[in-house]
Design a binder for these strands. Structure first.
Lengths: 127, 127
DNA sequence: ATCAACACTTACCTTTTTGTGCGTACTTAC
DNA sequence: GTAAGTACGCACAAAAAGGTAAGTGTTGAT
């Protein structure tokens, strides 16, 4: 009994496969605000409003949603102190840090090299 | 005169800033299909329809659009042979490979660890 | 007494993204 | 002769993402 169990051992995802659940994870991580949340939290614990101020252009609604997704996936830990006014702290879990390191490296490359990209885009303008 | 000029030398982007153009680059790279195109092309040159078959679930329209974005940004090189039926080859530029390496590492982490994420998500189900 | 701050949530609306289906121009295979 | 493959572009429609504004409940500051 129970055919679908215990076989999670060495299974590697296949992002090219349409139905592979790893796609969902990728989408959450590389979502518009997800990337920036990872980079921000890699620098340490933040409160909600700190994140909101740090990440330019994010709305409360989107930040809340993004954080909930990442919490669900086990990348972000949320700690709420029952005080008034509310005080909530967000930080990366162990797993979150592992991903964040990868995300950070991508972000780094872009921050350092984006002028090269802009230059290329300008050349290709006519295209 | 000319305060905004010639200072593109050592300028690093700031992804947290709403108006920084690096945001656009990030969005193209981390777009839904962009990530998968990078990973696919890192394995070598592909024709359009090869990419389409490889990347499960992508429509012709979206693949074309994604490739155009990445070509514009100078990440992808497009070579069309004037034969009939059409024959077009896509590959990564030098710059494209640099990014692709970063993207690949993120994709790798996800493929290897996505079951951990799924497990965490299941635990948080009640949340 | 009024207001801002906190961490959200909800409803409503706009924008963006994505999919679907059709057309193209020619060739090869059936 | 009919269909499929090639690499798209275009028009239309649906779906998803995102933004805006308002409300919550309490407290400390003005």
């Amino acid at each position: 009994m129970d055919e679908v169990r215990l076989n999670a051992r060495m299974e590697r995802g296949e992002l090219f496969a349409e139905r592979c659940p790893s796609r969902q994870v990728l989408n959450h991580v590389t979502s518009r605000w997800g990337v920036l949340v990872f980079v921000a939290l890699l620098q340490g614990t933040h409160r909600f409003s700190e994140l909101r101020r740090k990440i330019g252009g994010v709305s409360e609604r989107m930040l809340a949603q993004t954080l909930q997704n990442l919490e669900q996936d086990g990348f972000v830990q949320r700690v709420a102190y029952p005080v008034v006014p509310p005080h909530v702290e967000y930080s990366l879990t162990e797993m979150g840090q592992e991903v964040a390191v990868q995300v950070q490296q991508l972000a780094d490359w872009i921050e350092v090299n984006y002028t090269r990209v802009l230059a290329a885009a300008q050349v290709n303008e006519s295209v």
